[in-house]
Nucleic acid binder design. Structure first.
Lengths: 154, 154
DNA sequence: AACAATTTAGTTGTACACGATTAATTCAAT
DNA sequence: ATTGAATTAATCGTGTACAACTAAATTGTT
């Protein structure tokens, strides 16, 4: 018996994640326009506002991004005055990412703006905790599959 | 009262969508490696296997992608022999995207491969329909917000 | 018919995302 | 101490995304 059609629900689920992710991206793009921050830049700043300094590697493991993505992104944040990048003195091979005074000053303004925009959504029909759980369940499945053989060969 | 921290659940939800979308992307990247198709290319082919020919505009409204994304993507699919792009004769301004014989021949192989990989996931703890509903609920909220004023002004 | 408005696809520029590679530094083990 | 392995960030190449713009074709209005 051959499969002549893809499994509809999985397809729909994947496409839903794909679409929702893009929509959230636009949402933050709009919300953060006053600060000229994209969503990836924003979550980078969020991580740094929580813990700083961090090395590129540490940031990457928080955000699941590698240096190929982070290095240019961090250069843009640096150029816009949010962060500084300095080689660590003890370990020349790593780079410490630090917040600027500007970033510390603007933090609460950014938070307030994001919260104001989020308040526009009235997520009445959404059970956050359950939804988050289900998404993490799916992600765990996907992580486990990467370990297996079938998907790796070819 | 000022907001000095972002609303945690919304942040987590957005980041979960962002991460899950990337993971699904890798999953399909691996699954479709034998066919040299990326996920966006795959969903484009899915749409065409269901209905073809379609104009670039029609494809775009199915996939929520504009010509800036689709034109180069379609050129790649054309170069790899999956589709042809021909100006419509009645309406010179639109381009018909057609499947090649190769695409028709390979369809079931692609479906089978995707299904085999999807079968590796045993989504025991996931209620598909409910999860899909919740995601669409969130997307509807995001769509409604784009209409509003606060988010539009810079 | 003439011309403005609209539609369609393509182009350009910016910004991720990531695999693969490179270069520099540090560690380890003899 | 020397050399081989591992770690870290940067770089390069490919492929999305999308806003803004352009060019061509079509439609609407006068």
């Amino acid at each position: 018996m051959t499969n002549t059609t893809p499994r509809l629900l999985d397809e729909q689920l994947c496409f839903a994640f794909y679409s929702a992710s893009k929509k959230f991206n636009h949402f933050y793009q709009d919300a953060l326009k006053p600060f000229h921050l994209t969503y990836p830049q924003y979550i980078t700043m969020l991580a740094l506002w929580e813990t700083s300094p961090m090395t590129v590697r540490e940031l990457g493991s928080h955000l699941n991004l590698d240096s190929g993505t982070l290095t240019p992104l961090l250069k843009r944040l640096e150029k816009q005055g949010w962060i500084t990048r300095t080689r660590s003195e003890q370990y020349e091979r790593q780079v410490n990412v630090n917040l600027t005074d500007y970033a510390l000053e603007e933090r609460d303004n950014v938070y307030a703006r994001v919260n104001d925009c989020i308040d526009l959504m009235k997520m009445t029909g959404v059970d956050y905790d359950h939804l988050l759980n289900q998404i993490h369940e799916v992600m765990d499945e996907l992580d486990q599959i990467r370990q297996k053989d079938l998907i790796k060969e070819a």
